[in-house]
């Protein structure tokens, strides 16, 4: 996309691992930490940060978020949203499962003009959101492909 130094990138996994598939973002970020990643990339699992996400994104020119997103797709389906697409989704209703949610956090960041220069959301359709510590088979099966794709994106610097 550009020449010179790649933008420092924060990859954040979000969700509650005590609520089954809600924890898929956390699991994906743990998988990413074991991958070979460019030096300008930091991976972090934030659990359920609520509005804390905004404070955490501050100062990072590029932020990738992985989260469970209800998209009305078959469980395990994942999709990459860029910033414009995310704001479109957030206007039509909550995209995230989290109460002080991702959608509201992004809306607030947009309102205040403090969004990172580049923001990408990797949303995965969950199958089961209820107390439990295991991911559903559909989500488990989908995660390696998602992680591989994110690694490619990070090396491409897209």
């Amino acid at each position: 996309m550009s020449t010179g130094k790649p933008a420092r990138t924060l990859v954040i996994g979000i969700g509650n691992p005590l609520q089954s598939d809600d924890g898929l973002g956390v699991q994906a970020s743990l998988m990413l930490e074991n991958e070979n990643l460019p030096a300008h990339v930091q991976v972090e699992e934030l659990g359920t940060p609520g509005w804390g996400l905004l404070a955490r994104m501050d100062g990072w020119p590029r932020v990738y978020v992985i989260d469970a997103v209800q998209m009305g797709q078959p469980p395990g389906t994942w999709q990459r949203f860029n910033q414009d697409e995310v704001s479109l989704v957030s206007q039509s209703g909550p995209v995230s499962l989290h109460e002080a949610g991702l959608a509201e956090s992004l809306e607030l960041a947009n309102t205040l003009g403090i969004m990172p220069e580049e923001f990408v959301l990797y949303g995965v359709e969950p199958a089961v959101i209820e107390p439990g510590e295991n991911l559903s088979p559909a989500v488990l099966q989908a995660l390696p492909g998602l992680v591989e794709h994110i690694v490619e994106d990070l090396w491409k610097g897209t």
């Binding site: 509005w51 804390g52 905004l54 404070a55 955490r56 501050d58 607030l108 309102t111 205040l112 403090i114």
Partner: peptide, 15 residues
Amino acid sequence: PEVVLRALRMKKLAG
């Protein structure tokens, strides 16, 4: 906006 930005600054420090 300055009120909300102040809250976020304090939240960031706390975090």
